[in-house]
Design a protein around this nucleic acid. Sequence first.
DNA 1: CAGTGGTCTAGACCACGCT
DNA 2: GCGTGGTCTAGACCACTGA
Lengths: 250, 250
Amino acid sequence: MQQSPVPPETPIYRRIADGLREAILSGELRDGDRLPGENALMAQYGIARATARQALSVLINEGLAVPRRGSGVYVRQFRPIRRHGSRRLSHGHWGRGRAIWDADTEGRPYTVDEVHVDRETAEEEIARVLGGPDVWVRRRRYSVDGRPVQLSVSYFPAGLVEGTPIVAEDTGPGGVYARLRELGSAPARFTEEVRARMPHPHETVQLDLPAGTPVIVIMRTAHTAEGTPVEVNEMVLDAASYVLQYDFDA
Amino acid sequence: MQQSPVPPETPIYRRIADGLREAILSGELRDGDRLPGENALMAQYGIARATARQALSVLINEGLAVPRRGSGVYVRQFRPIRRHGSRRLSHGHWGRGRAIWDADTEGRPYTVDEVHVDRETAEEEIARVLGGPDVWVRRRRYSVDGRPVQLSVSYFPAGLVEGTPIVAEDTGPGGVYARLRELGSAPARFTEEVRARMPHPHETVQLDLPAGTPVIVIMRTAHTAEGTPVEVNEMVLDAASYVLQYDFDA
DNA sequence: CAGTGGTCTAGACCACGCT
DNA sequence: GCGTGGTCTAGACCACTGA
């Protein structure tokens, strides 16, 4: 009653997963279509329930499918937001009284929820960059079309921003960069460090991420023209919701 | 013989995974340390084998642990390569007769294997950007410390590069960009589009990726000063091996 | 309320590693 | 050779969805 005497070169669950993946990538199954469920696979291939689940879990962990309780497993879609890096910042958008974030959704409205502003002691890396552990922290979450897509944590040197609108929930027109300019600390140069990894549990919850979805982590440091760092901004993006764009000269 | 009468708010396998994750993230378990195996978990928590496996699979799919057959499950490490985007290209490295890739490993030697140069018909998106489907394609794989870290596919308009060293395996000093300059098509502006996703099976094989490792995909388009696209380069990076850096002015 | 996915048990045989 | 993870079976109870 065990598997076939000669072990097939690839396990059954993988071959099933391969077939389903092929159907998805070839377009035979489209966005939102329903995949054959556990019972269907059991019947079709004569396998046990755990094996059918294993096949489906492959696609789920690859981010190609999403399970819905009591309903089925469905093909997942990819319709990203375009986030402009260098171009966006280099065309003076924030200088014209607009928040940077304006351009990022390219027409799609975004909302900010869960704004928190606190005075904290920064961890080592942040403290090293900002010249001390004494910081104000702005945490917020962005949503597009009602779905959370980004977590953002900004750190400012406490001595610089104390008593300014930067430590208020509403920073006023133009956002924190306009306020920094008024303080004589206008950001002039940016460094963005980008990596990708699987999300931590709290990120999975806050961004409502299905299995198989990586996050993109951007650490952005803003410097004045004199080279003084005035902000470190850690952004965690739902990788399935974003394309980053950087334009630059040779 | 089923689970406890009142369902615990979080499943057992999750609570076990949470505990192990905590131990990893807090540093209690360090890079390369061995996690408790399936048998250990079964004994410690009084659970069935499949449940212990499920707990471990959570960490493996999060990229925090790697299973080794016949040995155990181990804590995974993260020691990335720094890849410079805008800074690297804007400081004239390739203009001084060096390939762009020089700076990317910051001292660590890299190797190129599996170079393939072919004439092909490009897919729609590439053809649209390059002004036609007739292209030469350079495919290669890069390794650092003997481990593959990046796949790269470059597309060039056939009419531009036909008969030049660009269609040879060895492109000569300075690489393809020096050759393009000699053709009067020096790249002057770049656009990089960056996204992250879980790897496709062939990427998993070619980059030797453990489960739970996303890939970073960079689509880079090189334009001449006149704005003519002369190259589209699709790079697929092992996300656990890279940090991308972009520097730019406001 | 029938069907779906989520969790769990208690077994089995296998390939592989390390000693 | 023994322990490890990899694959698989045949059941079970549960929460949830949707007609």
